[in-house]
Design a protein around this nucleic acid. Sequence first.
DNA 1: CCGACTAACCGAACAGTGTTAGGTTAACTC
DNA 2: GAGTTAACCTAACACTGTTCGGTTAGTCGG
Lengths: 212, 212
Amino acid sequence: MPRPSTPLLSPDRIRSVALAIIDRDGLDGLSMRKLAAELGVQAASLYGHVRTKDQLLNDIASSILSTVDVSGFTVDWREGLIRCARSYRAALSSHPNIVPFLAYGPAGREESLQRLDLLHGALVDAGWSRREATMIAAGLMYIVFGSALSSFSSGFSSDPADYTDRYPHLDRAHLLPGVARELDRDSFELALAAFVRGLQGLCRGPDRDSRA
Amino acid sequence: MPRPSTPLLSPDRIRSVALAIIDRDGLDGLSMRKLAAELGVQAASLYGHVRTKDQLLNDIASSILSTVDVSGFTVDWREGLIRCARSYRAALSSHPNIVPFLAYGPAGREESLQRLDLLHGALVDAGWSRREATMIAAGLMYIVFGSALSSFSSGFSSDPADYTDRYPHLDRAHLLPGVARELDRDSFELALAAFVRGLQGLCRGPDRDSRA
DNA sequence: CCGACTAACCGAACAGTGTTAGGTTAACTC
DNA sequence: GAGTTAACCTAACACTGTTCGGTTAGTCGG
């Protein structure tokens, strides 16, 4: 089957099918051969459209993170932080299986840096010092990424009965998939609210002019 | 070389050399063949002492996390949270290359659950509701794990000059290894302090009887 | 219309991975 | 001293990401 009339492959199609496989079978469930098979093609053909598997994963990650919205700073920095974090979390939790890949180090993830830069600039504009802004942005990322990977729903929700007797304080109910998802969201919201709330008064902060 | 007079291998020795390789060459730098070679042995011989590579990594992770101290709750829950988080972070940042493995889901990491159970119990004893205690413990883990992997020092510290012009708000200094480490620690401390500080007043909390 | 060229795919291979089966021999037990 | 076990080995299996050299469909220049 040499050069079909209409091309079977395109970077977009490859990315989209790859992401579907990751969502379905997990990060380790994606192999170039399986991806090729699912595209009706041999593995070698992929390399005409994709430089390497790692690059493919990076592109997928970037496209997921590109849905993150950092434009909530028009109101005030608190709202901005909260909206940004929620948007980040929404992006990550829509494709949780790719999160472990992100853990391998963004190195030069272009989009992430740009967003971080924007976030940082907004905080500085709000009156925080450059160093404070950096640390606050980092702290926000801690909560976002931490909640994306050490979540209850994906963490340990196989057989609740196993845990009940060995860990008396942990509630069995936490491990039911439905409750776990809700608990994840509430834990995230709690951590986020506590973090933002705890910020003021810790450093000198910007509140002398931008807000009472 | 069949059955040497004194055994070359033991689970402990395997774990320790494996961890050394991970620390030196990264998580992907560890292969069973390389590990065996470094132990003066063939790869197959490892499987007499270790069930599988994944199990080996789990054991290593557990042994690292076993140094975490959750016994700071005798003073009060705030101190307890802070000490626990610091201890956790210290454990993780002493072997940062294994953190991505942890991201693949603890599933049944025994030790983690036990520690979580203890933490949870301490919070309940301090007066928080069970659900609140769960969410607070989760939030603490967010900050700990988030700081362990989305750190500045491991994140993007290759060539500062690349970033400076493209991201005007980000300071070049952040990317120098020495500064990055310090910045990581300060960011963690800030996030932790803000989180703990922000907790009181958010939920009803335990402060009516245990503290003013 | 026809030749040159390129783009898209394929088959086969390479070096590497985790893991297992079956063999060899030293050390321990009775 | 025989039998058993424990510790290692060699060889292989099924996989992985990736590359090389082919084969052909489409496209462009003359």
